[in-house]
């Protein structure tokens, strides 16, 4: 469905200087630096896949998305999506894709959501009967019936994001780009959004490319991740394999009734300890998480336990080390 080959793109960035004399100089002469946003990126994505496209800020994620959605023209390389080259036949190509920019709204702020939907129907020229069918389906799966008659400004962020996603699906795209769809959402809304993404992928066979900073999004949705850093492709494959390689440690925070006896659990070490709370680092290759919790409950009266995976940034730092970037 998607074939990307040797994609490269660089930007010219003006160097901003500080200090009065520098500023004076800049009045007449300004230095530019060439920033390589994408360096020779290649991958293929099949019909019906959900792919997590991840990397730190400035890694080139959004540049790739912009190239693939037909906004930007790359310097070199080719990209074929459903038989189109995105930046060449923009108008006919974008009829088949949907794009959600998590940080920006495509809905008209002051009018009821349904009005925005109808305008989008006109923009995409969706035939009436088809529009009605899709809308009904979206209303049902996204639980929108109470939302679509209120103006967008009165919706919560989570409600709005559900409407945003529905808005990008009104024309039945085959391919959906989700750029940080869960940014700023509360836990409940995040789960709802993830659930829905899964549903449309399963039932309509929509191919989904997802960028996010939230590792849980990836965990819940994507089997496959593409990791990029400083413009280069670092990893392309199963999430599990990535995790096995780098994320062998989890952090457990346990709160308990006051207990002054220190204890030891094999395969783990204390990051901090106090009579009410302990933070442990666990090597999952040596011991299972459930075993550690089990052991904990033998030593202390547990009140609360939380488990965290190392953040995606940590994995990337490790990858950077490996690739000596």
């Amino acid at each position: 469905m998607i074939t990307v080959e040797g994609l490269s793109k660089s930007f010219k960035v003006a160097r901003r200087s500080t200090g009065l004399r520098q500023a004076m100089k800049a009045l007449f002469y300004r230095e530019h630096t060439l920033v390589e946003a994408l360096k020779d990126i290649s991958f293929t994505i099949g019909q019906g896949e959900i792919v997590g496209y991840i990397g730190p800020n400035g890694a080139g994620k959004s540049t790739t998305i912009k190239v693939m959605s037909g906004i930007l023209v790359p310097d070199r390389g080719s990209c074929t999506i459903m038989g189109y080259t995105p930046w060449k036949d923009r108008v006919s190509y974008v009829k088949h894709i949907g794009v959600v920019f998590g940080q920006r709204s495509q809905l008209w702020w002051d009018v009821p959501v349904i009005d925005s939907f109808e305008l989008l129907r006109d923009i995409y020229n969706v035939p009436d009967h088809e529009y009605k069918k899709t809308l009904d389906l979206l209303i049902e799966t996204l639980d929108l019936q109470h939302l679509i008659h209120s103006p967008v400004r009165q919706l919560s962020l989570g409600q709005r994001m559900r409407c945003e996603i529905a808005a990008s699906l009104l024309h039945n795209p085959k391919l959906l780009f989700l750029d940080e769809p869960t940014i700023g959402l509360d836990a409940v809304s995040k789960i709802a959004v993830r659930q829905f993404i899964k549903t449309i992928n399963k039932e309509k066979g929509v191919t989904i490319i997802l960028t996010t900073h939230d590792m849980l999004d990836i965990e819940a949705l994507a089997d496959r991740v593409i990791l990029i850093g400083k413009g280069s492709l670092l990893y392309d494959g199963k999430l599990e394999a990535l995790r096995k390689r780098f994320a062998t440690h989890k952090t457990i925070t346990a709160d308990y009734r006051e207990n002054r006896n220190q204890f030891h659990i094999p395969g783990s070490s204390f990051l901090s300890w106090s009579p009410e709370r302990a933070v442990l680092s666990v090597d999952t290759e040596q011991v299972m998480i459930s075993e550690v919790i089990n052991q904990l409950s033998l030593h202390v009266d547990l009140i609360d336990v939380s488990i965290e995976s190392p953040p995606i940034e940590e994995m990337i730092v490790q990858l950077y080390k490996e690739y000596q970037l």
């Binding site: 901003r16 500023a23 004076m24 800049a26 009045l27 007449f28």
Partner: peptide, 12 residues
């Protein structure tokens, strides 16, 4: 302010 103003030579 003066410094910020100077940054924008095109605007000036």
């Amino acid at each position: 302010r003066l410094l910020t103003g100077m940054q924008y030579r095109a605007a000036a």
